[in-house]
C-alpha cells in the first residue's frame, strides 16, 4: 500500500513541476500563437532571482516568490513591447527571435552571475518530510504540488470568469473580429505574455531548491514544457493539466520499473505516436478552422 501511495506521490510531484513549467508556455502559445523558445530562460531567470534575493538580501524563498513573479512578468512585458509585438503574424520569425533572446539571456547571466552552479536554500519550515498513508514524501515537494494546482486554478478562473478572460477567449477564436468589437487585442497579448513569463519565473524559483541553478538549466525545461503542451493540445488549459498528470505519472512508473533513461525514451516514443494520430493533442476541445 505505501508503495502505491509513494509511487503516486512521486508521479504527482513530477507532474506538478511539468505543470508549473508548461503553464506559462501554454497560455502564451494558446492565446498569442507565439512559440516562445525563450520560455526556459524565464524559468532560469526566476531561479537566479531566487538565488540572488537569498544571497544578497537574505530573503527566504517563500518571501521572494511574489517579487520574482512581478520581476519576470515585467521583463516579459518589456520583451513583448520591444520584440514580440512586431512579429505576431510571422511565426517563423518569432521562433528565431525568441531563440536568439534565449541565447543572449543565457550568456548575459553567465557573464554577470558567473558560470558556477548555484543552489537555493529550501525554506526551513518545509525541509522535513511528511507521512501520508504510510508513505514518506518531502514536504517541499507537496508544497510545490499545492502551488502548481493553485496557480492553475487561478489561471483557469481568470480565463473563465473575468471579463479579461472573456476577451482573451474571443481573441483566441478570432483576433480580427474580436478587435472589430472594440477589444484591445494588443494590450491583451502584452498582458498574456507578461503573465506567462511571470509564471515561468515562479516555476524556476520553486524548483530551484530541488535542482541546480545554472545558465543552461532552461533548455531541458523548455523541451519538457513543449511535450506537455503538444500532448495536451494547444489552447486547452485543462489539456495542459491532464497531460502533465499523465506524463508525470507515466514517467514516474516507468522510471521505477526500469530506469530514467528508458522512461524518457519510452515517453518520447509514445508522444510521437500519439501526435501522429491526434496532431491536435489529446485534449484539444475544438480545432480552429
Amino acid at each position: 500500500m505505501d508503495f502505491v501511495v509513494s509511487q503516486i506521490l512521486t508521479g504527482l510531484s513530477l507532474s506538478s513541476i511539468l505543470l508549473l513549467v508548461a503553464l506559462g508556455l501554454a497560455i502564451i502559445y494558446g492565446v498569442t500563437g507565439v512559440i516562445n523558445l525563450a520560455h526556459g530562460e524565464f524559468v532560469m531567470l526566476g531561479a537566479y532571482c531566487a538565488w540572488l534575493l537569498q544571497v544578497q538580501f537574505g530573503w527566504s524563498l517563500l518571501a521572494s516568490l511574489a517579487v520574482i513573479f512581478l520581476l519576470i512578468a515585467a521583463l516579459g512585458w518589456l520583451i513583448e513591447v520591444a520584440v514580440i509585438r512586431h512579429l505576431y503574424d510571422r511565426p517563423l520569425d518569432t521562433i528565431l527571435a525568441t531563440w536568439g533572446l534565449g541565447v543572449m539571456t543565457q550568456q548575459i547571466v553567465r557573464l554577470t552571475a558567473g558560470g558556477e552552479l548555484r543552489y537555493v536554500q529550501m525554506p526551513p519550515s518545509l525541509s522535513g518530510s511528511v507521512d501520508i498513508l504510510g508513505a514518506t514524501d518531502s514536504a517541499y515537494r507537496l508544497f510545490v504540488l499545492a502551488v502548481a494546482l493553485g496557480l492553475f486554478l487561478a489561471t483557469w478562473c481568470i480565463y473563465r470568469y473575468t471579463s479579461f478572460g472573456l476577451k482573451l477567449r474571443a481573441i483566441t477564436q478570432n483576433r480580427a473580429i474580436a478587435s472589430s468589437f472594440g477589444i484591445n487585442s494588443a494590450r491583451a497579448y502584452r498582458l498574456t505574455f507578461a503573465y506567462g513569463a511571470g509564471i515561468a519565473g515562479l516555476a524556476g524559483a520553486l524548483i530551484s531548491p530541488l535542482k541546480s541553478v545554472s545558465p543552461e538549466m532552461g533548455t531541458t525545461y523548455v523541451v519538457d514544457a513543449f511535450m506537455v503542451v503538444v500532448l495536451g493540445g494547444v489552447q486547452s488549459l485543462v489539456g495542459t493539466l491532464a497531460s502533465s498528470a499523465v506524463l508525470g505519472e507515466t514517467s514516474g512508473l516507468l522510471a521505477y520499473y526500469s530506469n530514467d533513461t528508458i522512461a524518457k525514451a519510452l515517453v518520447l516514443v509514445a508522444i510521437v505516436i500519439i501526435i501522429r494520430f491526434r496532431p491536435q493533442g489529446l485534449f484539444a476541445p475544438r480545432v480552429r478552422a
Binding site: F3, T10, S13, S212, T220, S251, A255, N259, D260, T261
Partner: peptide
C-alpha cells in the same frame, strides 16, 4: 545498477527505489 541520462535532474523515482 542504474544509469540516468546526462544532465538528468529529477531523482524522485530513484529515491523511491532507495527507500524500498
Amino acid at each position: 545498477e542504474e544509469y540516468v541520462p546526462l544532465g538528468h535532474s529529477e531523482f524522485s523515482s530513484v529515491i523511491n527505489k532507495f527507500r524500498s
